[in-house]
Structure formats: C-alpha cells, structure tokens
C-alpha cells in the first residue's frame, strides 16, 4: 500500500467522520421526538401521582420545560460535560453509569460471539465449498441452515436446561466479571444464527470463485490446491462475507436483549428495551446514540476493510 493510498484513505475516513456528526445529531432529534410521542411518561404509574408530587419530580428533571429547551439542555450537557443525563427509573445511577457498566459486558460477549460466528461460519463454508457435493458439504449446509432458521431466542432455555439443570456443568446465569463459565452459554446462544448465515454466504461465494477463470489458470499452472485456496481464492471469497459482517457486528451488540433476559448478564440489550418500555428517556437516548455511533463506525470500518481486500476499489 503506497503512501498516496494511505493518504487517500485517511482523508476519506475524515470526511466520513465529519458527515457522521450531523447524522448522529439528526438521530438524536428524531429519537427525542419519537419518544415523546409514545403515550405515557416516565412517571406514569399504577398509582397516579398527586399533581404537586408530579410537579416536583418534573421540576427536578427539567421535564416541565418546553420540549425544545429540554432537547437543547440535553445536547449542551453532552457536548460540555459529556453527561448523558439521569435515569428516571434507577434513581442512584445516571446514564453514564449505566452505559459504563452495561456496554463492556455487551461488547465482551458480543465480540466473542461475533468471533465464534465468523471463524466457525467461514471455516464451515470453505470446507463445504472445497468438498462440494460430499457429505461434508451436506452436513455444513444443513447445520448452517438449521442454525439460521431456528429463532435465536429459543437457544436460551435449551442451553440452560441442558448445561445447568441436566449436566450441572455451568452456572445458569450471571456475569461475575466475565469468567469463562458465565460466557459459554451467552456466546453460543448469540452466535449460532449468524454462524449459519455466514457459512451459507461463504460457501456460495467460494464456489463461485473456485469456478472462475483465474483459479482455473492457477490450477493449470500446477499449483497445489491448498495454496490456490489460501493465496488466491480466500481473499476474494471474503468480500461479500465482509459486507455482511459489518451489520452482523452491530446486530450482535444491539439485538442481544434475549441474552440479557435469559442469562442475567447485565448487558445493555435489556436496559435498552426496558428503558423504552419504562420511558426512561435519557437512558433510551443515550443507548441509541451509542448504537448509532457504533453503526456509523462499523460501516466505515467495513468499507475500509473492503478497500483493503479489494484493491480495485478506490476512494
């Protein structure tokens, strides 16, 4: 990679990041108003609060201000103090605390699940393609499709019943600072369905490459098969896989609510859904911003990885 190319990619990255700022700003505004359209507020409860009490609470959190003022205060607090506001539901923690606690957890098991899904999925797909139309292929296809077709939330109860109740091997839930025993089930539960689709994409991509002209040429030159695959076939095979992996990484982190619900891992997925249901506005917004920023960054990384894998693409 020449210095010119590095420079080009650098300026591309900076341009993309600059565009990301208004994107996230608009995201905040859109979510803010959507949230307020939803019926009920953070302090709607079974026991309707007397007016005076409600007024005190709203005054404390600034909810008595006009909406635009609330939005403005919210934004300035983020920019000036990097403060994402208080939680209305969890009175002794604020949004920064909640994210600082939950995000590393989600990131840990999400990243491990992502790695597991990618490695196993790609390996399975490559093996199936190389041994096309053999039992390995059929096995890999069946496994991949089955993993993808099962709704991933049924993995939770199945794993806990098997490993905790019947085999007594693993603790049924919790995080305990991320010890491996507590990680096994969340990672398996989260990775299976993505593993299935990665295997399928890898397989069809690999098959296509193996039938292409340049591989035929390489074969004609008498190169050993493993070298052909390793040196020539693998890189182009992974192109469509990579464009799929980007969104998967985001999904793995944001769609992990069922892992938190079943395994009590304490990640952000559950906080996210419950904050929407309890109208904990600041928590909902904070996590949305985090996820939005993550999406933007992951998309950028995917594009950069794409450029690295496919030298034909230039920015």
């Amino acid at each position: 990679m020449g210095p010119l190319l590095v420079l080009a990619m650098l300026s591309y990255t900076i341009r993309r990041l600059l565009v990301a700022i208004p994107t996230i700003l608009l995201l905040i505004v859109a979510c803010f108003f959507l949230m307020h359209v939803a019926p009920g507020g953070p302090f709607t409860s079974e026991r309707p609060l007397p007016e005076a009490v409600l007024a005190n609470i709203e005054a404390r959190y600034g909810l008595d201000q006009p909406l635009w003022k609330q939005l403005w205060d919210y934004l300035t607090n983020i920019v000036v103090h990097f403060d994402f506001g208080p939680s209305f539901k969890f009175k002794d923690r604020d949004v920064n605390d909640i994210i600082a606690h939950g995000f590393p957890i989600s990131l840990t098991y999400g990243f491990l699940a992502f790695l597991a899904a990618s490695i196993v999925g790609i390996a399975l797909g490559v093996a199936a393609a190389i041994r096309h139309n053999t039992w390995i292929d059929y096995f890999a296809v069946c496994l991949g499709v089955a993993a993808q077709a099962l709704p991933n939330f049924i993995m939770g109860p199945i794993l806990i019943l098997t490993f905790t109740l019947w085999l007594g091997l693993l603790p049924g839930g919790g995080w305990n600072g991320g010890q491996w025993q507590y990680l096994v089930m969340p990672v398996i539960a989260l990775s299976t369905s993505y593993m299935g689709s990665i295997a399928r994409i890898t397989r069809s991509s690999m098959l296509e490459i193996l039938h292409s002209n340049f591989i035929r040429t390489a074969r004609a030159k008498g190169l050993p098969e493993y070298l052909i695959i390793w040196r020539h076939a693998l890189k182009p095979t992974l192109l469509p896989v990579i464009s799929y992996l980007g969104p998967v990484f985001v999904y793995v982190l944001t769609g992990s609510v069922f892992v938190d619900i079943y395994f009590s891992t304490g990640g952000l997925g559950q906080s996210y859904v419950s904050s929407a249901l309890s109208r904990d506005y600041a928590v909902l917004l904070g996590v949305t911003i985090l996820y939005g920023a993550l999406t933007v960054i992951v998309n950028l990384l995917t594009d950069l990885a794409y450029a690295w894998f496919d030298p034909k693409i230039r920015y």
């Binding site: 995201l27 959507l34 944001t254 999406t295």
Partner: peptide
C-alpha cells in the same frame, strides 16, 4: 440517501418498539 443513512443508524429494535407502542 443521507436520510436513508440516518435511518439505518437507528437501531431496529427501537423503531419497532416505538411504532408498536405508539
């Protein structure tokens, strides 16, 4: 397309939950 990009950055979980709530 910028609008599409922004909408893509909103987590789908949030959109679904909010629509079903509203």
């Amino acid at each position: 397309m910028r609008l599409v990009d922004i909408l893509l950055a909103i987590p789908t979980t949030l959109v679904i939950i909010l629509i079903l709530i509203i």
